[in-house]
């Protein structure tokens, strides 16, 4: 009960912040991208925090969702919301096709997923597929452009993502998943269907990235292939998750607010030293806070949601 209350209040405060944020600080795009990165960070969290698989090529699902949703809109004239659901479903199917990657471990998995995302990118952007994907010309959703509606849809997707993480944080399923991370063999012996659970987490995170990608495409409305397959998207989401601390609801939220906030703050106040400051910051964080901010609270004995 108490757990539910805690998680619920974190969830509510976060969503409320995004709901009213644009009235406090009117750069709506910054808030929108904050939601995008938070949802992606939680997607990474579901996979990495609970199973230990770090998908470097997570952006592959994001780009897949962006392209699929855009194509459903432009080629089949579907409603944007239906198209976004379609984008999520497409990412899910791609996730299913790529599920053999889960046989790999550690850095092998990370780099394998990176290769997969690059393969999708180079295929989608290839001129040979111009009739289907528009090749290097990218997508133009000008006819569907609606920043207010896409902002609202993103908020809903973020809510669902946060709710899912909160559920995994406290449910038996989440506990079982974490058991597979700590010691897969004992978990299997305790009757946990290790492989099925892992695939489930993988597909869930793929679905989230697909939905987010679709909504991002709708919001930005004009993009080139390298915009939605930019590896920095993966790296940002991973850094935010690790900085906050995985396997918790609050960790990635804090990670996103602090780091994305700083990113924008540096970008706006000291643009010329931007890359340098951000790099130094990341190195310092890894060296002095290697287990995430949440570890500080846990060390003190607080049970963070």
């Amino acid at each position: 009960m108490r757990n539910k209350l805690k998680a619920g209040s974190v969830l509510l405060v976060t969503l409320l912040l995004f709901a009213v944020g644009t009235h406090i600080y009117s750069n709506e795009n910054m808030w929108f991208q904050g939601m995008v990165y938070l949802a992606l960070a939680q997607g990474i969290n579901i996979l990495y925090g609970f199973t230990g698989y770090l998908p470097f090529g997570y952006v592959g699902f994001f780009g897949t969702g962006a392209y699929a949703a855009s194509l459903y809109m432009t080629d089949f004239h579907t409603q944007p919301i239906v198209a976004i659901l379609g984008g999520g479903a497409t990412a899910l199917i791609v996730g299913l096709l790529l599920s053999p990657l889960l046989r790999l471990s550690g850095a092998y998995f990370s780099i394998g997923s990176l290769a997969a995302s690059q393969m999708i990118y180079y295929t989608v952007s290839n001129p040979a597929l111009q009739a289907v994907t528009n090749g290097p010309y990218g997508m133009n959703l000008e006819a569907f452009y609606n920043p207010t509606a896409s902002y609202a849809v993103m908020l809903v997707i973020l809510a669902l993502t946060l709710f899912t993480t909160a559920y995994l944080r406290y449910s038996r399923t989440g506990l079982a998943l974490r058991a597979t991370r700590e010691d897969a063999v004992s978990a299997a012996m305790a009757g946990i269907p290790v492989v099925r659970m892992r695939i489930m987490a993988w597909l869930l995170s793929a679905l989230i990235a697909g939905l987010v990608g679709g909504t991002f495409a709708w919001h930005i409305s004009v993009f080139y292939p390298n915009t939605v397959f930019d590896l920095n998207v993966s790296i940002f989401a991973i850094v935010f998750t690790l900085f906050g601390g995985g396997a918790s609801l609050l960790g990635p939220i804090i990670g996103m607010f602090v780091l994305y906030g700083l990113y924008n703050w540096i970008g706006i106040s000291a643009p010329q030293y931007f890359q340098l400051i951000y790099g130094v910051l990341i190195v310092m964080l890894v060296l002095f806070l290697p287990n995430g901010i949440m570890s500080l609270f846990r060390k003190k004995g607080y049970d963070v949601p």
């Binding site: 805690k6 209040s9 974190v10 405060v13 976060t14 912040l17 944020g21 406090i24 600080y25 910054m30 808030w31 904050g34 609050l250 939220i253 804090i254 607010f257 602090v258 994305y260 906030g261 700083l262 924008n264 703050w265 609270f297 607080y302 963070v304 949601p305």
Partner: peptide, 14 residues
């Protein structure tokens, strides 16, 4: 603490 952190962190954006 959690709420305060979330809010104060978001202040860096605001």
């Amino acid at each position: 603490i959690a709420t305060a952190l979330t809010l104060s962190a978001s202040l860096s954006m605001v």
